[in-house]
Design a protein around this nucleic acid. Structure first.
Lengths: 253, 253
DNA sequence: CGTTTAATTGAAAGCAGTCAAACTATGTGG
DNA sequence: CCACATAGTTTGACTGCTTTCAATTAAACG
């Protein structure tokens, strides 16, 4: 439960999800200097090639990571949810190799890189927690690679829908029975390594088969077990200590 | 130049490549308790689902990370070169979500997780260096995702061949003019999200076009610029401070 | 409301997959 | 040193999932 009013509270919860943290760790995280911005949808938070002196924490809304390859094709390489530290690599490497862009309207906190380094130097458990988060992020990258490289369109889509459901529930922003999918079909296509036309057809098949229902930008997973089966979805790679309870999702409760 | 005889010397060099480290950092890394094993090709170093109390450092030879999806299809999600810390996630998360297997015969050092934690707690620069390496690893994951998701077979293969050339040169194990590709075409296929049949045909085309030459398990990049062009290869995502000099590679000369 | 953006549909083409067989190394034991 | 076994590479014919191209419909927006 996130009962905390501090902007960075959710970030702390995210860190504490994988590593045991103490009250003084919490105090140190919440005490990080930061400035908060509201950004419109589709705003760049970080650009490829950019050098930056601040790290961004996503407080509210969704963001995504993407890369542009030759001929302008785009691959979305990650979806970011509230509580996540978006660009730790900015603190540790030279220039960014990816773009990060808001998907919805977002609230973002900027933390000076120096402050983050001081925090990690002084609080070993926090440092470890941040590292653990980075490990989870890498695990998700690996799973996506397997998803794109070795599953067909139907399975890819099913897998992604399951992942997003679980992750949204894990941070407590899914309404349990259905969730928001704040993406166009073109974005979904760029995420799954497909074309938007094929994404459209794939979604229709999943709906026709009674696995999901769609309504605007919302998705309801009608038959969780079937969808997870189709997508070969096993959530262990998300490293959520206690498996999140994933009950069948429905529009109509 | 790696003029160091200590087994962990190469690991230190790898860490120092992205973060400035001091002599006492070096001493601390080299002082890590460890045991060394020789492993045959195709030996598992880590298995999915496994919990482990040690971290492995690859000292010599090649290894690869992979995941198995439904119906037994395999996706290779990473190639590991000497000097790399293979399974930091073992130290920070519960169970492994991937398999790590030797490609060639390898020499591996096992370091107790506790010792690694103590090192990171006491040496902030080393801790930062390890984190930076993890960031680079993640950057490679992202690039591979873009490679698999948004490039055709020809470009995918070209990109991978370029990456491996640069990375091998970066750790000083490529003979500059040509390098070892210690993989079967089936493994290449599982890495690129293709079939072995198509990998075979793709390699033949690259050779016929005069971009590469093949001989056993060795590859020679005949026309670097052309190959990098075909593969849309830009090495910035490898975050090698000073760009590695990549001269055209040839067998002869 | 008109305008723009996103979703949907149909038909045709193509890149890569599948299946099966032949060929080439490499290695082993007699 | 050769016969056989095994693993990996190569080739051909055919199939098919996904893309491409184009046009239409629906939704979102100011």
């Amino acid at each position: 439960m996130i009962t905390d009013a501090s902007p960075l509270g959710r970030m702390f919860e995210t860190l504490a999800a994988h590593t045991e943290l103490e009250p003084d760790d919490r105090a140190a995280v919440l005490a990080l200097p930061h400035s908060i911005r509201w950004l419109n949808p589709a705003t760049y938070i970080l650009r490829e090639g950019e050098r930056s002196s601040h790290c961004s924490v996503l407080l509210q809304g969704f963001a995504y990571r993407h890369k542009i390859v030759a001929e302008g094709a785009r691959q979305i390489v990650g979806i970011c949810l509230p509580g996540e530290l978006l660009d730790l690599h900015a603190a540790l490497l030279d220039r960014s190799d990816e773009n990060i862009q808001s998907l919805s309207g977002v609230r973002v906190a900027s933390i000076p890189v120096d402050a983050l380094h001081r925090l990690m130097d002084s609080h070993r458990r926090v440092s470890r927690a941040i590292m653990a988060r980075a490990m989870v992020e890498a695990a998700v990258y690996r799973e996506w690679m397997a998803n794109i490289g070795r599953r067909d369109a139907r399975a890819r889509m099913a897998h992604f829908l399951c992942e997003l459901a679980v992750r949204q529930q894990a941070v407590g922003i899914a309404q349990a029975k259905a969730y928001e999918l704040p993406m166009t079909q073109e974005q979904l296509a760029d995420l799954l390594g497909l074309t938007s036309v094929h994404v459209n057809r794939t979604l229709q098949v999943l709906e026709a088969d009674g696995l999901i229902e769609r309504q605007r930008r919302r998705v309801a997973i009608v038959d969780w077990n079937a969808l997870a089966g189709v997508g070969d979805f096993r959530p262990h790679y998300l490293h959520l200590g206690t498996p999140v309870e994933v009950e069948p999702l429905r529009y109509y409760a």
